[in-house]
Amino acid sequence: MKVIVSRSGGMAGIRLTWEVRVEEQPDPATWADFLNSLPWDDVTDSEAAPDRFAYRIRCAPHEVVLGETQVNGPWRDLVNRVRAANGM
């Protein structure tokens, strides 16, 4: 299972992507439980705002696009975990 987080936008407009292969992590079961617990189907469209980041998060079969202000709670936790796994 693979998790891909792409961040686009921001004032710089530079796209960055972080990726995690769950089975290669030291705690894959914890990762899997966490991913399954995310509210994938509850994401609503957000209004675009100048220079804010936009996040596209993919973990088959799921894919969501979140505005920066929507990256809270478990979504923020996910982004931070994926970035940390990439040494960011």
Binding site: S8, G9, G10, G13, A54
Partner: peptide, 12 residues
Amino acid sequence: TDDDNGGVHLNS
């Protein structure tokens, strides 16, 4: 592109 609200920082 679908990213960056349709490439607003790119096509600018």
